Amino acid sequence: MKLRGIAIALLCSGAPLSAPAADHTVYFALDSDRLSPDGSSIVSAAAADYAATGETAVSLVGHADASGPADYNEDLSRRRAERVVAALVAAGVPGSAITAAWRGEADPAVGTADGVVEPLNRRVEITVSQSVLPAAPEPIAQTLSRIAIGLGPYVGYNMQDGDESVFLGGNLTATYFATPNVALTGETALFWNLDARDEGLGFRGALGADYHFADYGVGGGVLPYVGVNAGYMTIDGSGKGGFFAGPEVGLSIFGVNAKLAYDIVEDRDLEEGVISLTLAYDFRF
């Protein structure tokens, strides 16, 4: 997801932030940057305030609790801020009117010891005002992105009549979130065909499009999705294989992504496809 014309202020983790009291506060599940249904409603209310009052600016600050490493929490608070920015833009607030910042675990609503889980600290504070973060340094214009790279095992089962076999290998996935819900993916798997007759190295490459049910995650961190994919695979080193297409379903659980696809291979009957299962941890940036 790329949003242009949005001002980003990256604040240091030192002194407390001098800013007006937040008009709206969005809370997040543990280790999650996804909006819950309540969070989406709060963002909508903030956008409605902007539209109704004719205010000139919306500023927001992302936060995390102290339950993880400080550098990870810094990045998590950034992703939470970006998520709210995207939702505000989708709700009609101009990107040029938004200033975003993130503070990691440095400015908690509730003081805790390091490593303590505190729901009230996992938040993004939204302020609708005539000025943006008066104590912040000059904003740095940036382009927000939503890219995920996943690496993990691949397991396949070839259902071709008379040539059934199991594949084991690894899979690399790159995902681009065009919106918070719609993702475009590219993935490449290298695997070994364990069948004694066709034993050898195989390849699977696919492009896909998925719809993520971002507003319906359990606690904001368990997110199902559905989609389609198409690509090309070779079954073993002999080059046996072909083009394929088919449906896929998946589940993301706090960054751990499991996907099941049914690959319908050309020149085969429908029931002679390949079942492909991947499991990966998504690194987002």
Rank of each mutant, 00 (worst) to 15 (best):
L11R: 15
L168F: 14
D195H: 06
G92S: 10
I149Y: 09
K2L: 02
L251Y: 11
L17R: 10
R268N: 12
I235C: 01
A90N: 11
T56V: 15
G220Q: 00
I6S: 00
S13Y: 13
V166G: 01
G227Y: 11
G242Y: 02
D263M: 00
P94M: 06
A113E: 13
D107A: 05
L190H: 04
F244R: 02
Y50G: 08
I147Q: 06
N181E: 05
A19C: 08
V43Y: 10
P153M: 13
Y27G: 03
P180A: 05
A214R: 10
V58G: 14
A7K: 13
I147S: 06
G104M: 04
E187S: 15
G111I: 08
D114M: 05
S276C: 03
D263I: 01
D31E: 02
R268T: 15
A245K: 01
R83Q: 14
G115F: 12
Y27V: 05
G221M: 01
V155S: 07
S67I: 11
I147F: 12
E82Y: 14
G54V: 14
A86K: 04
L172V: 15
V117A: 11
Y281T: 07
I147H: 09
Y176G: 04
Y262L: 01
A9Y: 11
G170F: 09
L76C: 00
W192A: 15
G92W: 13
A280Y: 08
D31P: 00
K2T: 08
D198I: 10
V61E: 14
G186I: 08
L184N: 01
S59P: 12
A148N: 15
G220S: 00
L133G: 00
A46K: 08
L279Q: 03
L172N: 06
L279S: 03
R4A: 09
F191I: 09
I275S: 01
Y216G: 01
T53H: 14
P139S: 02
S44I: 11
G208T: 09
S145F: 09
P224N: 04
A15N: 11
A91V: 08
D210M: 01
E125S: 14
G68T: 10
G39F: 07
F28R: 00
A90I: 04
I98H: 07
L190F: 12
V274P: 05
D215H: 05
A178M: 05
D49R: 13
A178K: 03
R197C: 02
N257D: 15
E248W: 00
D75R: 12
P16V: 08
G150V: 10
E248M: 06
G220K: 01
A206F: 05
F167Q: 09
N229A: 14
G227I: 06
P180I: 05
A22E: 10
A7D: 14
A66W: 12
G250I: 13
D210L: 02
S18P: 07
Y211M: 03
L201S: 07
D269E: 15
I253H: 04
A22I: 09
T112F: 07
R284C: 03
G221E: 02
G273K: 02
L133T: 02
P20R: 10
Y281P: 06
V256P: 05
L76S: 01
E105P: 03
G104L: 01
L207N: 04
S44K: 15
G273D: 05
I8D: 11
G255K: 07
N171H: 13
L30V: 05
